[in-house]
Design a protein around this nucleic acid. Structure first.
Length: 647
RNA sequence: GCCGGAGUAGCUCAACCGGUAGAGCAGCCGCCUUGUAAGCGGCAGGCUAGGGGUUCGAGUCCCCUCUCCGGCUCCA
């Protein structure tokens, strides 16, 4: 047989040769480095027979697939160690994931495994790795495998095989054995355990079997593995650095916002954080007005009858707050749409009025489950940069495009590069298939016309319509939904919305629900992490700090402050009787963009010595000129140098 | 909500096997009058998250509640 190598040469091999044989034929070094092979785009074990005539690529530690392989190997070694240390443990699945791997177990009832147990498990794993146990694959009839796992009392494996047989008509399954442990596994794997050069178990967590909260909760052990100790160390180092830009930590350190046990999930904005909030609000308001939105403001508390009509009572009650007001049942709004609908309905509408765009920095309350609260990124008290567009069916696509343009305009100001998701019809939905066809194709065509890349998230749309979401990641790579553009044919129906057409007949408008920043809370949380607290000048809570060198310079310092403040700059004087070194250090720690040092020299010349955060001393400047340049930098919301993200 | 973990001064963390709760920073007071990342000295600061229990004795052991952290589910 013969195979073609990536350099274009051909390799002659005896019939039935394996990947390992091919590697050895090329060279001993490659044979030692080989982890697996790829043929026809599929990664396969070294021990698998090669396919005659197909191009062959040998996968080594240098290949992009190598990490995935050894992490999958490590997951098996983890299961090996765990089943050995805790007899009676039931195993389920253990895949490689971004940055590592996990394995889900059901431990015997009297056993709880916590993070304190990880070193012990790691030690057991290490001994299996040192033993360099080979991964051996066996293909056996599904029925035999089923029998085996029934006998071993491994119900999760049994269920997996049953499903494979039923859903995919599989008749043969593969088992992988390393040392004492055999797992149902599709593969591929590296040749033996010693190829896992460096690993670490990182955490323990609960995880529902098959991601279903009605089913058994298993214990998930997370870990990561690398091809060298240095790679592992630098990965851990990056994680450590990422923690330094956690918005919860920076929020406290910079005095932006705080939380209290007295109102879980609800941020308290401190003065410094409120300047950011207000700058963002100013931007939001100006841009909405410029784009034909009209701002409204609506109550937060409503008669439950409204929620019954909107469908929230039926679909969303669990997440709402209710109270009685003089024996009348009321509910806090979890969304603004029914409120904006009231304004729409206040007057008769003509097709000439459409589209009508209402914007509101709307305060909604959602009773998020206690376990999901997360700083500013998941709160119960949410201020959305909400808007509802009432338009005709023909206007939908253009309106959606305008929303996307608006969104990208905003995100570019901050240097954000959002990931897009298109979510389509869910199983449980209202409306006809024709309606869904039209709505989905309107969104899709809007995305296509903009030439935007997006992920298709089938079945994840709202029950009333499909949506496009804008996602951003936090400092450790978790994805959060910010903006959303949703098409809705249902609310107009429920509330009987109408407009009079050119034909003098009544027609039903379409609603677009749209938040672009998403919520001010979450957006600012992402903003803090994105900038690592080093805000661009226009957002910095204190834009300049004046540092008099000695007490005799305080008077001049105040004059400098007043002059800059007159140009609209947020400026303070550090009047403490501390050394300049100390004042500078404190200013740097607070990440203040400009520090203006002044002593005898500056005072006499009417100048200031300028120090830029991160850059240091940039020389002295004329005061009036400095005021002009700072004001200009603020006005143009200059794109800042974003600190490197460690991930 | 579920699983695992944590909660000690404003912050970051100590406190052996159950034996009088301690440090740095921040704060306050004083001295120093300072030239580009921490000047020096002193003082004050605690119902160890809250409640119950075991014990001669509990920050430490047990139970309940709350909050937070990491995941899972959820996120209209």
């Amino acid at each position: 047989m013969q195979v073609e190598l990536p350099d274009g040469s051909t390799l002659e091999l005896p019939e039935g040769a394996t990947g390992a044989d091919a590697a050895r034929a090329i060279g001993e070094g490659l044979a030692r480095a080989a982890l697996a092979v790829r043929q026809d785009g599929q990664v396969r074990d070294l021990a698998a027979p090669l396919e005659d005539g197909a191009p062959l690529e040998i996968i080594t530690a240098r290949s992009p697939d190598a990490l995935e392989l050894i992490r999958h190997d490590a997951a098996h070694v983890l299961a090996t160690a765990v089943t050995e240390l805790y007899p009676g443990t039931k195993v389920s699945i253990g895949p490689p994931i971004e940055d590592g791997f996990y394995y889900d177990f059901e431990f015997p009832e009297d056993v709880t495994v916590g993070e304190a147990d990880l070193p012990r498990i790691e030690e057991a794993m290490r001994s299996h790795i040192h033993a360099d146990e080979r991964f051996e694959r066996t293909d056996i009839p599904a029925g035999d495998a089923l029998k085996r796992f029934v006998e071993e009392d491994q119900p999760y494996k049994v269920e997996l095989i049953e499903d494979l047989v039923r859903d995919q008509g599989v008749d043969t399954v593969s088992l992988y054995r390393n040392g004492p442990f055999t797992d149902l596994c599709r593969g591929p794997h590296g040749p033996a355990t010693k190829r896992i050069k460096a690993f670490k178990l990182t955490s323990v967590a609960g995880a529902y079997w098959r991601g279903d909260s009605n089913r058994q909760m298993l214990t998930r052990i997370y870990g990561t593995a690398f091809l060298s100790q240095e790679d592992l160390d630098s990965h851990l180092e990056r994680l450590e650095q990422a923690r330094a830009r956690d918005h919860r930590r920076l929020g406290r350190e910079l005095g932006l916002f705080m939380f209290s046990d007295l109102s879980p999930g609800s941020p308290f904005w401190q003065p410094a954080g409120m300047t950011i909030w207000n700058d963002l609000t100013d931007l939001w308001r100006a841009e909405n007005l410029r784009r034909g939105y009209r701002e409204v403001k609506t109550p937060i508390l409503y008669d439950v009858e409204l929620w019954k009509q909107s469908g929230h009572w039926e679909k969303y009650r669990e997440n709402m707050y209710f109270t009685d007001v003089e024996e009348r049942a009321m509910g806090l709004k979890p969304m603004n749409c029914p409120a904006h609908i009231q304004i729409y309905r206040e007057e008769r509408r003509s097709y000439r009025d459409l589209p009508i765009r209402y914007s509101e920095a709307g305060l909604v309350h959602r009773h998020e489950p206690s376990g999901v609260l997360h700083g500013l990124l998941r709160v119960r008290h949410i201020t959305q940069d909400d808007a509802h567009i009432f338009c005709t069916g023909e206007q939908v696509e253009d309106e959606v495009i305008d929303c996307l343009d608006f969104g990208f305009f905003l995100y570019e100001i901050f240097g954000f590069d959002p990931r897009l998701e298109l979510s389509t019809r869910p199983d449980v939905r209202i409306g006809s298939d024709e309606m869904w066809d039209a709505a989905e194709s309107a969104l899709e065509s809007a995305l296509r016309r903009k030439g935007l890349e997006y992920e298709l998230n089938e079945g994840d749309g709202a029950f009333y319509g499909p949506k496009i979401d804008l996602h951003m990641t936090d400092s450790i790579g978790r994805s959060w939904q910010l903006g959303t553009v949703q098409l809705d044919y249902s609310m107009p129906e429920r509330f009987g919305l109408e407009y009079t057409g050119a034909d003098n007949a009544e027609h039903r408008p379409v609603m677009i629900h749209r938040a672009l920043l998403g919520s001010f809370e979450r957006f600012i949380g992402i903003l803090v992490e994105h900038y690592a607290g080093e805000f661009p000048l226009w957002l910095a809570p204190v834009q300049a700090m004046v540092l008099p060198i000695a007490d005799r310079h305080v008077e001049y310092a105040r004059r400098v402050r007043d002059e800059l403040a007159a140009s609209g700059i947020r400026v303070e004087v550090d009047e403490r009787t501390e050394s300049v070194g100390r004042k500078i250090r404190d200013g740097e720690v607070r990440k203040i963009p400009y520090m203006l040092v002044l002593g005898d020299r500056e005072q006499e010349a009417g100048r200031v010595s300028v120090r830029r955060h991160r850059e240091g001393d940039v020389g002295d400047r004329d005061l009036a000129e400095l005021a002009r340049s700072l004001a200009a930098e603020i006005a143009e919301k200059r794109a800042p140098a974003v600190p490197d993200n460690p991930l």
